[in-house]
Design a protein around this nucleic acid. Structure first.
Lengths: 156, 156
DNA sequence: GTGGATGCAAACTATTTGCATAGCA
DNA sequence: TGCTATGCAAATAGTTTGCATCCAC
């Protein structure tokens, strides 16, 4: 990663660390930077793997610890989208809803004002104090649907 | 469990099994019956534990396999509500939304017609074929909120 | 210099699987 | 009788933790 152009997420993470006198390390910068650039909701393991593939020397344990710290800091969000691995996304991303493709596994974030408005209302209706919410829509993405249609008409 | 009053879920599971010539076993009846009666979204392990506590001899592996089969049959739903264990609920339950209390961990299902209507629309807006959806609201349940308030005013 | 981060490897937890045996159809 | 479930125990997979060492402050 070029340290000349740190992403806003890296900056915010650094600020968070400095505020409480915690060390800003090369690993933390790298992990935050990679998460900020990731568009595939990586797991701790896959994120570490790609970092190592890029030449960085980072242990899996550090990746786990750092991502956990970022979640705590409110700078990342974690979710296991129906699978068995916890996957992370950069926080601050407006996306609160996620489209999970059952075919290719790709996850796409989206945001909906109507949804945002509805959630606290639904919580309230049940005497529940809303803090945050998570919405997943499982189905088939456009690309996979198109591929299916093509395969169907062409035969295998 | 008294076999004299099998729950509808047990019946439907039996029917599903018979339809495809699969064995209807005592274990499967027990597991389906227990899941039908459970109101706490049990994990495979906790479900097996309570069965064994009740005197039944059922291995953990069988519980996992049976619950998985029920999900496949569309008679149960599985989700890990932000935690690291997969928890199950009887299918057919109208609930599609879940309130997850961050204090006591209790999960409460709810259904909302408005939410049901909105999901396919949201999917469509993004060129996504909607199959199913999952909505979780994380926050504090009424009981815990009340307890907090009491503690606060009384001092610890 | 010191508290905290890192890396390694071992520990853990939840879940899955292989295989011999038992049970339903 | 034949196909499938079950149980046990071992294998996995993902994640966490203990501890010695290293590094940012």
């Amino acid at each position: 990663m070029a340290p000349s152009d740190p992403s806003p997420l890296v900056e915010r993470f650094r600020a968070y660390l400095r505020e409480r006198g915690l060390p800003v390390t090369a690993q933390r910068d790298l992990i935050a930077g990679t998460l900020a650039r990731a568009d595939d909701y990586p797991s701790a393991e896959s994120l570490g793997r790609s970092l190592r593939a890029g030449g960085a020397a980072i242990s899996t344990a550090t990746v786990y610890r750092t991502l956990e710290l970022m979640v705590l800091a409110g700078l990342a969000r974690a979710s296991d989208f129906g699978g068995r691995v916890r996957r992370y996304e950069a926080g601050g991303t407006a996306a609160r809803g996620h489209l999970v493709c059952g075919r290719c596994g790709r996850i796409t974030g989206f945001s909906s004002e109507a949804l945002e408005r509805m959630m606290p209302v639904l919580a309230d209706e049940h005497g529940f104090q809303h803090q945050e919410h998570r919405t997943e829509i499982h189905g088939i993405c456009r690309q996979c649907a198109g591929r299916d249609a093509a395969t169907l008409s062409a035969g295998s």
